[in-house]
Design a protein around this nucleic acid. Structure first.
Lengths: 228, 228
DNA sequence: TCAAGCCAGATTGTCGACAATGTATCTATA
DNA sequence: TATAGATACATTGTCGACAATCTGGCTTGA
């Protein structure tokens, strides 16, 4: 039973890492559950070799923890880890905003203003809806991160941190801040970038993420209370 | 010919990852060189299985790059990557200093003052020598990082970024700032932490790292000129 | 009854071999 | 001579099997 959907990159190991990442982030493999190599290998129709390589990659991404001679487990989200992740995000995306402010060209700035206008229009059309479930290129934060031009920072934020962040979002049913408020903050950040005010852009980005962190914290504590 | 020194952790794969990391950071495996699986496997007296897992780990640490069906290569340091790493360090260690300022207990603060006194004494005894080749627990920066209490930040900085940073240090023959100046800056950072002034501690740490980054940049450009 | 030790089953770690892919050399032709 | 194609070699990717270790249940003795 080959569940390997045909993303088909060069090697099985890469495909598996991709598939497993998705499965974990989207909750198909539940948090804290054990990763059984024989089981998964049969499920995906591959041998344990490439599967193990994929698991090692996931460990590097922080999605599973491995213990020698025992095996791998999907990480178990908790409030402390979430706060830790957001503290790092605050520092790194703040830096990204600063760098973007010095490097971003006029054309790219205008593209981003257009993106925010699109978000605005979406909000006007869908009252009370949550702020656009942002995928890929439509995510304001991702655009800023890429605009930083710092390859290592881009990799870390987009490949490593964001996987975990998305798990939290899903877990807390995306109880995010007032979407209009978030959009206003995005616009203020972009204004600072457009004016090449690195200090201000960093400050605003950090405040923006810090606010989101507090909201998520409240949401998680709510969940902890309910599920008691 | 088993070159596997008896660090002997639980699995061969872990040992290999450790050995290879050291070999790369210390330059025993030169930058940009190809990693031959059969050759290394014979050299360490293991099969290719655990060796490949170790290589995948190194890729996650950013020490090698892999291409499907071609193999792995040790990264090639260049000025841009170095600057990128230091920008991340600036953001993350700045955050670490901030967190340390809010969390560090009086006892640990005193321990750190004692450490800086030790560094001072070392400088007084060894005029003109460079600032203590800091290993492990005697490194001021590592102590601050650990004091942050942020597990993810600690892992990233100590396991991932510092490997690369140490490669740069070795590569540039450790042309670092005036050691007495560095020590003064460390003391100022610690003062801010002792007073629980998070903002100031972060500011000073960022300035400190930024200064080191500029110096390293000059050193690397010097090297680039010489080796032309 | 309970704790310690043992035993069987299952899982992970490691190995050697085969398949697939890339690389370099050699030949033939324009 | 230079370029394109074919071929042989080496390296990487994948597999199935065996060894080492862990887990849970059972027995045994106090």
């Amino acid at each position: 039973m080959s569940n390997l959907i045909s993303i088909k990159s060069a090697t099985l190991s890469e495909d598996l890492a991709q598939q497993l990442t998705n499965a974990i982030v989207q909750g198909h493999i539940p948090q804290g559950s054990k990763i059984s190599e024989p089981e998964l290998a049969k499920q995906y129709g591959v041998s344990r070799g490439p599967l193990r390589e994929a698991i090692v990659k996931l460990e590097g991404l922080g999605l599973v923890t491995r213990t020698a001679n025992v095996g791998a487990r999907v990480i178990q989200l908790n409030t402390q880890d979430m706060l830790d992740s957001f503290a790092m995000r605050e520092a790194l995306e703040g830096m990204a905003a600063r760098l973007a402010a010095t490097r971003m060209q006029t054309e790219e700035v205008n593209n981003l203003y257009a993106l925010l206008d699109k978000h605005q229009a979406y909000l006007d059309d869908n009252q009370d809806e949550r702020y656009l479930q942002q995928g890929g290129n439509d995510d304001f934060h991702l655009r800023i991160i890429h605009a930083s031009g710092n390859a290592k920072l881009i990799r870390l934020l987009t490949e490593e941190l964001y996987a975990v962040i998305h798990m939290y979002r899903r877990h807390t049913a995306d109880q995010r801040s007032d979407p209009r408020q978030a959009l206003r903050e995005h616009r203020a950040i972009l204004d600072a970038i457009a004016n090449h005010e690195g200090d201000l852009a960093e400050l605003l980005m950090r405040r923006h993420i810090s606010r989101a962190s507090h909201l998520l914290q409240q949401a998680m504590e709510q969940i902890a209370l309910i599920s008691r």
